[in-house]
């Protein structure tokens, strides 16, 4: 596996505008993440870790600086190009799973595949494979309301990996789970990282979760302070 920096965040500043007031969240931040890394982003509330994750995931744009993923300057893409880029390269795992309540597990996982050229049976097959990877092959037809929190998050991870994205971005993936379910999810993420070489960036405030990562960086007041895992 190459050690070339997959993610290059350079001199990034992000300022939000609240009314007439400018609120700086990130200021002159640099971050490199290598392919195959499992990086934990830690920091207190309001430190800018979710903002940084959103910039890397193309959900938001920096006020200044550049964000390159796999050589693509995503901060320079149009909204339409950025949406297509996200569909191809990013798998998101959310704290509250963000599943569609009217779709069963399999259909939820199939969602990102609607943006590909796969036909219906191929989509179904890919979704089943992804659910099998997360250990939910027996819950294909279950709706989110009938699944436990841990199971819902597994469906969320299956949805994130089903397109075989370049990078997995996880925002507090265990934040809404009990310790046991959280551990299972972290083990699953570790497995995806180690066995399938997935590059993962995980935002967490839980030291127990960050301990599973290969590298931890701390954010405080919009600045990074690195420490080895």
């Amino acid at each position: 596996m190459s050690n070339a920096a997959l993610v290059q965040v350079q001199n990034v500043t992000k300022t939000f505008h609240r009314g007439s007031e400018d609120v700086p969240v990130l200021s002159g931040l640099d971050l490199m993440v290598n392919q195959g890394e499992f990086l934990a982003l830690m920091g207190p509330s309001g430190s800018g870790k979710s903002t940084l994750l959103n910039l890397i995931g193309g959900l938001d744009r920096p006020t200044q600086g550049s964000v390159s993923i796999g050589g693509d300057r995503i901060d320079q893409l149009s909204d339409r190009e950025l949406a297509a880029w996200r569909a191809r390269h990013v798998g998101f795992v959310f704290q509250f799973y963000n599943l569609m309540p009217v779709l069963n597990a399999q259909r939820n996982v199939e969602l990102p595949l609607l943006l590909t050229s796969l036909n219906k049976s191929e989509r179904r097959q890919h979704a089943e494979t992804a659910l099998n990877v997360v250990g939910l092959s027996h819950r294909l037809k279950h709706y989110p309301r009938t699944l436990s929190g841990g199971e819902q998050q597994r469906v969320g991870i299956a949805r994130a990996i089903v397109t075989d994205p370049t990078i997995l971005l996880c925002d507090e993936p265990t934040g809404d789970l009990d310790r046991k379910s959280g551990d299972d999810i972290l083990t699953l993420l570790q497995t995806l990282n180690k066995e399938q070489g997935k590059t993962i960036i995980m935002v967490t405030h839980d030291p127990h979760a960050s301990a599973r990562a290969s590298r931890i960086v701390h954010l405080d007041k919009g600045q990074l302070s690195a420490q080895p895992a």
Partner: peptide, 14 residues
């Protein structure tokens, strides 16, 4: 809002 934002995060266009 959540569903729409999620779909757009996944890459669905506006």
């Amino acid at each position: 809002t959540n569903e729409i934002a999620t779909l757009r995060a996944l890459g669905f266009g506006s």
